[in-house]
């Protein structure tokens, strides 16, 4: 734990998110690189696990509370908490305070955490005032607006502004970029047919944009979109926006061949 404000540089507790931890560590490291480049001291506390959203959205309020409680404790000492996900950041920011409506002390702590929590691109642009990143990427990309980030946190222009500063990158908008991709957490497993219909629409729109790569700020959507594109045998690639902004694109894109033997 750090003492708030004792450091000349802002301290950031990185909430890696369980999906990035398990599926794509490079997203976490890209976030660290971007935050450090913006002058932050970054730490990813070891005890963090999951924000509790699966339980929360499945009606298991008790498990959501249990996970929220420990997340609040773990991240209490940092100036800011940043997640490379609008969905998890939204959980901490918008939903944690409601979870403790009958526990005033926890509600207060949840509120404090909520006020200090940000999604990655929003933190860089809105809080730190970052206007540009130093990265290169040759080619056209299209950006999918993930629902929670867009509607709970107002994330729309921030990733686009940063992408605009990437050398060689051209952003081409797809139609319906704000329409849900059909991931929805457990929804995609409980109602695979509807989810399939939605993600098929999404990859069709993405394909029509002509871009060779789909970017987004949430790994859930990205795994869904990449999984559908690969099932269709599409050459369109998929990455988390942080990877491109950090210039960390040497590793295969999501769902592309190459992993399976990864050694450090």
């Amino acid at each position: 734990m750090r003492e708030t404000g004792s450091h000349p540089q802002p301290t950031v507790g990185l909430f890696v998110t369980c999906l990035a931890d398990l599926f794509r560590p490079s997203v976490g490291f890209a976030a660290i690189k971007l935050l450090e480049a913006a002058g932050c001291v970054v730490e990813a506390p070891e005890a963090q696990t999951c924000c509790g959203q699966p339980g929360y959205n499945s009606g298991d309020t008790e498990s959501a509370r249990a996970l929220a409680r420990r997340t609040i404790e773990i991240f209490e000492g940092y100036d800011h908490v940043v997640a490379p996900s609008g969905s998890c950041a939204g959980m901490l920011k918008e939903h944690y305070p409601h979870l403790f409506s009958d526990e005033p002390e926890m509600a207060r702590r949840a509120e404090t955490l909520a006020g200090r929590t940000h999604e990655l691109t929003s933190f860089l642009v809105d809080v730190l005032g970052v206007k540009a990143v130093s990265a290169q990427f040759e080619g056209q990309v299209t950006y999918h607006d993930s629902c929670s980030g867009l509607r709970e946190l107002g994330i729309k222009e921030q990733p686009r502004e940063l992408l605009g500063s990437v050398e060689g990158l051209e952003l081409v908008e797809m139609e319906d970029s704000e329409v849900c991709c059909g991931f929805g957490g457990t929804f995609c497993i409980k109602y695979p047919e509807i989810s399939d219909h939605m993600v098929t629409d999404k990859v069709t729109r993405a394909g029509e944009s002509g871009a060779g790569m789909v970017l987004a700020g949430d790994l859930g959507c990205l795994l869904n979109i990449a999984g559908k594109l690969k099932r269709q045998g599409s050459p369109v690639q998929v990455r988390h926006v942080a990877e491109v902004l950090a210039g960390m694109v040497d590793e295969p894109a999501i769902g592309e061949p190459g992993f399976g033997e990864a050694e450090v």
Binding site: F29, E46, P192, K228, R231, V238, F259
Partner: peptide, 21 residues
Amino acid sequence: GWTSVRDLPVTQGRTFRSLYK
């Protein structure tokens, strides 16, 4: 429920926490 309609992209082999540690 996942793989009936789409592929599951693989992981990068190790978790963030183990690499970070």
